[in-house]
Computed example of a mutant assay.
Amino acid sequence: MRTCSFCGEQIQEGTGTMYVKKDGTIYLFCSSKCEKNRIKLGRVSRKVKWVKK
């Protein structure tokens, strides 16, 4: 089990999305909603109300 980099939920093996930046930083996302909020919109998870983290 892995943890989503944005919302902190558990991700089952074989599901989710991995995003690797040019500097080698790896982000794991459980859904496209989390991915868009972090990468495209640049939001911080502690300031988003629906995140349970």
Rank of each mutant, 00 (worst) to 15 (best):
W50N: 04
G42M: 04
G42H: 14
S5M: 04
K49I: 07
S5Y: 03
G8K: 02
G24F: 09
K22F: 09
T25F: 14
K53G: 11
K21N: 12
D23C: 08
G16E: 08
L28Q: 03
V20F: 00
E13H: 10
K53H: 08
M1Y: 01
L41S: 02
S45E: 15
K40S: 15
E35S: 09
C7T: 00
C4N: 08
S5A: 07
D23K: 14
C7W: 06
K22R: 09
K49H: 10
C30H: 02
V51A: 06
R38K: 13
Y27D: 10
C4I: 10
K22C: 07
Q12N: 12
G42K: 03
L41N: 12
Q10E: 14
L41A: 12
C34L: 01
R38D: 15
G42F: 11
M18F: 04
K21I: 04
S45D: 14
C7M: 03
F29I: 09
I39V: 07
V44G: 06
R43F: 06
S32N: 13
K33F: 08
C30P: 00
L28H: 04
K21Y: 15
L41P: 00
K21Q: 12
C30K: 02
E9R: 08
V20S: 09
S45H: 12
V20A: 10
R38N: 13
Q12R: 02
K49M: 07
L28D: 10
V44I: 11
D23N: 15
G8N: 12
E9N: 01
M18T: 12
I11Q: 07
L28P: 00
K36E: 04
T25I: 07
V48Y: 06
M1C: 10
Y19S: 05
T3M: 01
